[in-house]
Design a protein around this nucleic acid. Structure first.
Length: 131
DNA sequence: ATTCTCACA
DNA sequence: TGTGAGTA
C-alpha cells in the first residue's frame, strides 16, 4: 500500500492539465499554493509540476468553497489535519521505554499461561495503551 | 504553444 | 481574483 502512495505523490502534471482536471484558473491554483494548501514541485524550467494528491486537494478546496467556507477556514482545516499527522508520526518514532517493555513482557506471560482466549491472531500491542 | 512573475486604467 | 505585460 506504499507503492500506490508513492505514485500519487509524483509530481507529473503541468498547470495546464490541472486546470482542465479541476476547472480552476491558473491564478487560483497558484494562489492556493501561496496559502500552503498544495506544494507542487518545480521542474528544471521552473514550471510547477502537480501530483495526483495535489489535484485531490484542489478538488477538496472546490467543495469547501462551494459549501461557503472561506480561505481562512480551509487553511485551518488543513492545519489541523497536518498537526494530527505530525503527532502520529512522532508516536511511531518514539522509542520503546523500559516501562513499555515491562508491560509488554507481563502480558506475554499471561498469554503463555493460557489466561487468554485463542480466538484469532493475538495482537501483540493492542492490549496496551498507546506508547 | 505554455507557464512564470509582477503589477493594477 | 481577473488580466495584461514581458520572459523563459
Amino acid at each position: 500500500m506504499k507503492e500506490k502512495e508513492l505514485r500519487r505523490s509524483l509530481s507529473v502534471f503541468p498547470i495546464g492539465t490541472v486546470m482542465k482536471l479541476t476547472d480552476l484558473t491558473a491564478r487560483q491554483i497558484r494562489y492556493y499554493e501561496e496559502q500552503s494548501l498544495i506544494h507542487p514541485k518545480r521542474n528544471d524550467g521552473n514550471r510547477r509540476m502537480y501530483s495526483l494528491n495535489d489535484i485531490d486537494v484542489l478538488l477538496e478546496i472546490k467543495d469547501y468553497l462551494s459549501e461557503g467556507i472561506n480561505m481562512a477556514g480551509i487553511k485551518h482545516i488543513y492545519d489541523m489535519k497536518r498537526e494530527e499527522k505530525e503527532k502520529k508520526a512522532a508516536e511511531l518514532k518514539k522509542p520503546v521505554t523500559d516501562d513499555d517493555v515491562r508491560r509488554i513482557f507481563h502480558d506475554e506471560l499471561l498469554q503463555a499461561g493460557g489466561l487468554r482466549d485463542e480466538s484469532g491472531p493475538t495482537p501483540l500491542f493492542h492490549t496496551h495503551k498507546p506508547l
